[in-house]
Amino acid sequence: MQLKIVLAVLGIVGGSAIALAQTMQSNHGDGMDHVTHGQDKPADAFGLTEPGQGAFAALSEVVRFLEADPETAWSRVDLTGLRAHLVDMDRLITDTVVSETELPDGISALATGDIETRATLRRMVPAHAAQLMRDGRWAVEVSVLENGMELRVTSDDPAVVARIKGLGFFGLMASQDHHRKHHLMMARGNDVHAH
């Protein structure tokens, strides 16, 4: 019994000594001292590419691009408009409620949500459908409904039909990689599809 007590005391004392030694070295381990983070390194020296939340990251990337471009017409820059579009993108992905119906040749997606989401859908879906229409492998139709939007995408090619069904509403809305170019155009104050 005494041996067990002695071993328990030694374990507690030994563990406390290790914890105390680690605490006294610094506030954190190597590289974890918040006070000295970035004091002698430029922002991108860390190799990080994502400066926080998605919309903030997109704005930050555009600002860096505009600042690096000597041709930027600062009097036309519209980061407030870009921010509004990024809010729409977030609302589209997080707040939209979608009911998809598989068709023999594609899908019909009924998209709805609260009043703000429905307003977002009316701005985003037709504009993105125009981008989808540039791909000649499928046909795209958009209808405004009382409580939202309908996106119908179809094809005669079975491989494309499988792709449409695999993408679904949200995948189709995220496809056609034009977003970064579109964001830069908006930030520069160009009137690109009516957002």
Rank of each mutant, 00 (worst) to 15 (best):
A43H: 10
A43E: 07
A45F: 14
F46V: 07
G47C: 12
P51E: 01
P51G: 00
G52N: 07
G52I: 10
Q53I: 05
F56G: 14
A58E: 01
A58S: 13
A58Y: 00
L59Y: 08
E61Y: 09
E61F: 04
V62Q: 14
F65A: 09
E67D: 09
A68L: 08
A68M: 12
D69W: 08
P70A: 08
E71T: 12
S75D: 07
R76G: 00
R76T: 08
G81R: 15
G81A: 11
G81M: 09
L82R: 03
H85F: 14
V87S: 09
D88Y: 10
D90N: 15
L92Q: 00
L92R: 00
T94Q: 11
D95T: 06
T96F: 03
V97T: 09
V98N: 03
S99I: 06
S99F: 07
S99V: 13
T101H: 14
E102A: 09
E102F: 07
E102G: 00
A109G: 06
A109I: 01
L110D: 11
A111H: 03
D114F: 00
I115P: 04
E116W: 01
R118M: 07
L121S: 02
L121I: 03
R123M: 06
M124P: 02
V125T: 03
P126H: 06
Q131V: 03
